[in-house]
Design a protein around this nucleic acid. Sequence first.
DNA 1: CTATCATTTCAGTAACTATTGAAAGGAAAT
DNA 2: ATTTCCTTTCAATAGTTACTGAAATGATAG
Lengths: 198, 198
Amino acid sequence: MTQATLSPTLHGSRPPAAAPEQTLRTAQDLFIRRWGEMGQTWGINRTMGEIHAFLYITGKPQSTDDVMERLNISRGNSSMSLRALCNWGIIERQHKRGERREYFVSLTDVWEMFSIIAAERKRREMDPVLATIKECQKMLDESSLGKSAARQEDVAMTRQRLAGMEEFVEVTNKIFQQFIGNAKSGLTRVAKVLLKAF
Amino acid sequence: MTQATLSPTLHGSRPPAAAPEQTLRTAQDLFIRRWGEMGQTWGINRTMGEIHAFLYITGKPQSTDDVMERLNISRGNSSMSLRALCNWGIIERQHKRGERREYFVSLTDVWEMFSIIAAERKRREMDPVLATIKECQKMLDESSLGKSAARQEDVAMTRQRLAGMEEFVEVTNKIFQQFIGNAKSGLTRVAKVLLKAF
DNA sequence: CTATCATTTCAGTAACTATTGAAAGGAAAT
DNA sequence: ATTTCCTTTCAATAGTTACTGAAATGATAG
């Protein structure tokens, strides 16, 4: 792989202070790399993270070819990753009048992006856990029938643990709800509220 | 793989109301599975998640062999996963007097476990991003030198985007700080603040 | 010191995920 | 209708992560 276009200060030693012409590009590449790495955290792979970072940090509409060239990835990969990001809703297609090719832009508001991702992850990850916990509790309620003493203790312990987990998931859920419900309307209002409070 | 021991209601259709003798076991297995699936969210793989769930939900010290048997995994896998969970600090070794083999128990407090994981993820994921953002900003500050008008606009845009991301990461960091150490009260407080404000 | 029992390590392999490149599909222009 | 330009799809493959089983290591008992 030719990595010449993407090798700033991430790990390793500092480059010899690039010519000012290239500074912007170098800074952007640094950010792109790091954001790509962090993508994993948000359930997005490295390439998708980098594409998103590229669109976000430049703040300009970019075509599939721009993406391919800047990140050194294949056409197929660009196409699929761009589509996936569109499906997530954190980037958007943009049609330029008179141009045949399509462009893509990132959402501007980080809080809104976060909110979108949080909503999806809540739906996919928290909700099923909560449902499962409740189902387990139900099973153990219904079966409060004749049992040996030892068994009863085990059942009691499991009930208790389920309750502990339930409480946790419920509170976490509430926090997510708040973000999801408010990010769009308030934009950075959530940020302000939280900054003030802490 | 023989899956007889681990096949409750996760997806698919409900089993024909197991004999009360097996109800506890079935409920636990259901929870174990779901928690294993969710492990991914927390940067823990399925097996580690399942082991943790098993220790947590039973609330009893369990040996390596108990784990192997209950979850149908190899000795090697058990050993490595148990060690990894110990390193995370969400389970602990327990030596039973007079016994040669070692036992493992989960932490009891979900909030504490969450706090441990959150602290680690902040350190590994948020902190580097923040550092990178600041580095990028510095690069673009220092280089406020002769540029074409077009370039200046690009630089301004990138600065603006970096600032937006910085704000986000800073606030998120503060929230994390809040409950690292006092997880329950911290998170509950975040929830209250958000609920009050909207 | 040797036997016994438990734990750790690790090379090999299985399972899964990401990426490419080329072919097929579509849509505007001629 | 044909060419041109761009996008999408997908089989093949590269790359990554998880798991096993067996051998090595360690630790207690006799």
